[in-house]
Design a protein around this nucleic acid. Structure first.
Length: 553
DNA sequence: ATAGGGTTAG
């Protein structure tokens, strides 16, 4: 009973931790009672679970000492739990030493050992443990062994090893286990083998919710949002009740498609099912509307959130930022702090971005990059890849290659598989004329099989979505589209809107690129009504002959 | 009903 209470202790850690340490002291003070193991075993295991979920090594060690003093850790799964805790906290050596000493290693011991490495993305140690396990007599792998192994392959994009394990799975007839099929769908899908993922999915007799969520997610995340939505519709027909994960993914698909209509349809669905009061989904929706260009809609959604947490506040702040409303972003930040919600590194990243877009920061305007660097280094929390990305963007703008490279290295250590990181470094080199370095970066990307999803633009017309990638000539009306564009550009030139913006692009040498960029910005100014349009970084609101960015871009 | 990862917000 006590154990089941403690098992759910993750959410209310502080009081629980206190209660636990008192119970433990009592236990170790009265050794005679320790011979009735079953109660204490379950208590101690719950203790370890609770303590490790707050990720503190000192807590873990003190528990370890107390357990060692009061009874042998060889009993039950206490040893397994401690090994797993050490691994999770990054004390690999301690964990391995302890694992070697465990006298009765059963299947669960091995599985949690492998799982510990997998969580840290340590594929080679996963494989070492797996080989060692096969040598140990009487222990046969099951789905608890395979799932973390495949997961580690997915994380590290080690598709060759993953495929080998797939072979192992087939050999031992383990594909019938649904959880294994689901992680395989995830692995093949995330590695860009959507056919493989779909093939596996179709072979499942009765896919469950996770199967559906996985097949939807891998399509949406690898540049196939239409297909993802297709699977979502199929899941509805199959009578599957979607959960938070399903709908977050469909919101992501709306973003990819740039479809406000689909977003509204899903918003309606959320409303009907009552899921619109789900904080995660409301936050996702808010952010989506903002990304689709409607700041007003995102404000509305935020207004309906009862107790916004730091993530929701940050989403609202970021919305103001990408819409060029730097002052509103700062206001939101102050309000958030006033409400007693603690900002974190992501909040600060968006705040910095919002300020630099709006030209509010001296650092942004004058290119005082080393100051920005110092700011990042002295931040109270560990900078994430977004912070480094913001610095790198500034470095590119001001041609500071050296600092840009440093930002890249930091960024890559945190997000080694995000193609955007590689591309922004490569772009920085290209725009500085360093072609050799640029192609090296692209080579590195290829070598690590980082998948690049080409950027594209969509427009919704009469219930159909038309998608264009750069230089795309595949649209059936391609000729007419090109003609119309040329016509527009000519009109703009004649209107005089041309000269106004030209000075902005002094740092772009390539005449063609320069002209193109100016066209994109100025042609919207020539038209009378409000137009909202997105560039690679944020939104521009054009009305009454001026843009919300005040030509700061 | 059994210690162990199936997918998924800023």
């Amino acid at each position: 009973m006590a154990a089941s209470i403690f098992r759910n202790a993750g959410q209310i850690l502080l009081p629980v931790k206190f209660a636990i340490s008192r119970r433990l002291c009592l236990a170790s003070q009265s050794p005679p009672q320790l011979h009735g193991f079953s109660n204490l075993d379950s208590l101690v295991s719950a203790v370890i679970t609770a303590v490790t979920s707050c990720a503190s090594i000192s807590n873990c060690r003190s528990i370890h000492c107390k357990v060692m003093k009061s009874l042998s850790f060889s009993h039950g799964f206490i040893g397994d739990q401690l090994v797993s805790a050490y691994l999770r906290l990054g004390f690999t050596k301690d964990a391995c030493n302890m694992f070697d000493e465990l006298p009765d290693r059963d299947l669960v011991s091995w599985n949690s050992f492998i799982s510990g490495f997998s969580r840290r993305g340590d594929l080679s140690n996963c494989l070492n443990a797996f080989s060692a396990m096969k040598l140990e007599t009487g222990v046969e792998a099951n789905e608890g062994t395979i799932v973390p192994l495949i997961s580690a392959c997915t994380e590290t994009r080690a598709l060759d090893i993953g495929t080998y394990i797939h072979g192992f799975i087939l050999k031992f007839g383990m594909l019938l286990e649904l959880r294994i099929a689901n992680v395989l769908i995830n692995m093949y899908g995330k590695s860009g083998y959507l056919d493989g993922a779909s093939g596996l999915f179709e072979a499942i007799p009765i896919p469950n919710l996770v199967s559906w969520n996985s097949i939807i997610a891998v399509h949406v995340q690898t540049g196939k949002p239409e297909e993802g939505i297709g699977y979502f519709i199929r899941s509805r027909r199959a009578g599957i009740k979607p959960d938070q994960g399903t709908l977050i993914t469909t919101l992501e698909a709306c973003e990819e498609l740039g479809s406000a209509k689909l977003a509204e349809a899903i918003h309606g669905f959320l409303f009907i099912t009552g899921l619109d009061s789900n904080l995660t989904l409301a936050t996702g929706l808010l952010s989506l509307y903002s990304k689709l260009g409607s700041l007003v809609a995102s404000q509305k959604v935020f207004g309906h959130i009862r107790n916004p947490d730091s993530i929701a506040w940050t989403a609202m702040l970021a919305s103001y930022g990408v819409h060029g409303k730097g002052k509103e972003a700062v206001k939101t930040f102050k309000l958030m702090v006033k409400e007693g919600v603690a900002p974190d590194h992501v909040t600060f990243t968006h705040l910095l971005n919002a300020c630099s877009h709006a030209g509010l920061l001296k650092e942004g305007r004058a290119g005082l990059l080393s100051d920005a660097y110092k700011l990042i280094i002295s931040m109270p929390m560990k900078p994430n890849s977004g912070v480094w990305g913001a610095l790198m963007g500034a470095c590119k703008k001001h041609n500071n290659i050296e600092l840009g490279k440093e930002a890249f290295d930091n960024m890559l250590a945190l997000e080694p598989l995000d193609s955007r990181n590689y591309l922004s470094l490569s772009n920085m080199y290209s725009s500085a004329g360093l072609r050799k370095e640029a192609s090296e970066v692209r080579g590195l990307m290829k070598k690590r099989s980082v998948i690049r999803i080409p950027g594209s633009s969509c427009i919704e017309h009469e219930k159909r979505i038309h998608r264009f990638v750069s230089g795309d000539r595949s649209h059936p009306l391609e000729e007419e589209i090109s003609k119309k564009l040329e016509e527009l550009v000519k009109k703009v030139r004649g209107s005089g809107a041309w000269a106004r913006t030209e000075f902005v692009l002094q740092d772009v040498d390539d005449e063609e690129v320069r002209e193109d960029m100016i066209n994109k910005h100025s042609e919207k100014l020539a038209i009378g009504r409000e137009i909202i349009i997105r560039d690679t970084k944020r939104f521009h609101h054009f009305s009454n002959g001026s843009c919300s960015c005040r030509d700061y871009w």
